[in-house]
Simulated scan of single mutants.
Amino acid sequence: MLPPLIISLISLYPVRRWAQRLGLMANPGGHSTHTKVTPLGGGIGIYLGMMIPMVAGTLFVLFSDAMPWLPELLPESLRRHLPGIHSRLGDLWGVLGCASGLFVLGIWDDRRGAPVSVRLGIEFLLAAVTVYVFDVRLTAFIGAAWLTDLLSVVWIVAVINSFNMLDNMDGLSGGIAMIIAGAMAAVMLTTPVAGGGQPQLFVGGLLLALCGALLGFLWHNHPPAKIFMGDGGSYFIGYIIATAMLMATFASDPRPHAVLAPLCVMAIPLYDMSTVLWIRIREGRSPFKGDRSHFSHRLVDLGLSRTQAVLTIYLVTMTCGLATLVLVHVTVLQAFAVLGIVACMLLLVVILESTGWAKQNDK
């Protein structure tokens, strides 16, 4: 977690300086609420924070075969996991390769503005490659394999776009992603691999690396933001989180309900995306055209400051994350109580929002 944090934090200083020459600047106006020209390359720091340690780690594992003295540099607690890491390098770079494709797509979108059809087409293509080529798919109790594969593709695209939509206030998308990645890493490190007693170190390590990269980015993105994440960052983190959840093992014989963990921890981003699309369609507007109908904007309309709105969403997301950590370790009956907590949180949000809408309509 520390190397991604340091790389992300340091690399964003030159990105901020050279953003204008790179064509990565966000101008005020339109549906945006910021009031000054701001660099738009935060995703570069997140990407480098993830990729540089992954490249270094991969080279270390590969060279360990030819240089037996290399593993001796590691403590025994880490050394014994090298064979397992070596066996998963193909999975790792399949995922990181697709994530890199989405990062490039996002940077292009930030610089030039890619058409919606092209963006969605590439997202679905890379999601399909992830599922059908790299065999990363949903674990669900569904008899039809084709349906499981289809849901896996839709899940990846939905999570990518949910984080992209969340990127509308300083510290919001990056902070929510860090909370979710941290919660899921805790789940992985406390949930054994199916058929064994070892924690899920591969997926947990991937998520912790993302947490570090996001924390380095948030140093620059906290209010008032010195740099925005941009589509390059939101596509990248959305894909990593989505695929990490598909690679993880949740359900087992005594706890089949644990398969709901991804939906539980992702409740707020999915709620935001669903309600925004519903509002736009209900009002006869394009569901793909940005506006100020997001959850965060609606909280501001209720009277919260922008900082209070972001912190409120953090708090609700943390609650869902803690509920997810409990969910994977309890019995079926206890799981109903945990899921009930998440449902009550969402209903509370809906009630507060509906009260605000009613007051606005009365004016």
Rank of each mutant, 00 (worst) to 15 (best):
D272I: 00
V350H: 10
D135A: 13
I237L: 13
L302G: 11
G196Y: 07
H34E: 15
V349S: 07
T243K: 01
A358D: 12
L218G: 05
N168Y: 01
R88M: 14
G49N: 01
L105T: 08
D231F: 04
P262R: 12
P192E: 07
N27S: 11
H294I: 14
H31F: 09
F288C: 09
M51Y: 00
C320I: 07
I351V: 15
H294C: 14
Y314G: 10
G49A: 05
I107C: 05
L214H: 12
L201Q: 08
G284F: 01
L24R: 15
L208F: 11
L24D: 13
A186N: 05
F134S: 04
N164Q: 01
G321D: 13
T33R: 13
I176S: 12
M273F: 01
V187A: 10
S354V: 10
A343M: 06
V104A: 15
G356P: 10
Y47A: 15
F250H: 13
M25N: 10
A186Q: 11
L304P: 02
N27D: 11
A261F: 02
L73A: 06
Q334I: 08
L322D: 00
S293F: 05
G238S: 07
A261N: 02
W219Q: 11
P224L: 04
P223L: 00
I240F: 09
V37F: 00
C320L: 03
V118H: 07
M184E: 08
W93N: 13
G90S: 10
D65R: 15
R21G: 15
G212R: 04
G175S: 12
P115R: 11
F288W: 08
G321S: 05
I240N: 09
H220K: 11
P199Q: 04
Q200I: 08
G205N: 13
P223Y: 03
L215D: 03
A140M: 07
L322F: 11
A343I: 06
D65P: 00
I107K: 01
M67T: 08
A343C: 04
L150T: 15
P71D: 09
G174F: 01
F295P: 00
S173Y: 02
V37C: 08
P254A: 07
S32W: 09
D301E: 14
C344M: 14
V55D: 01
R112W: 11
F202Y: 06
A185R: 03
G284C: 03
S32V: 08
G45C: 09
I313L: 15
G284K: 10
H81E: 10
P254Y: 00
I240R: 04
A158E: 11
S296Y: 04
M245R: 04
V153A: 09
G121Y: 02
L96H: 05
G90W: 02
R137E: 14
E283I: 03
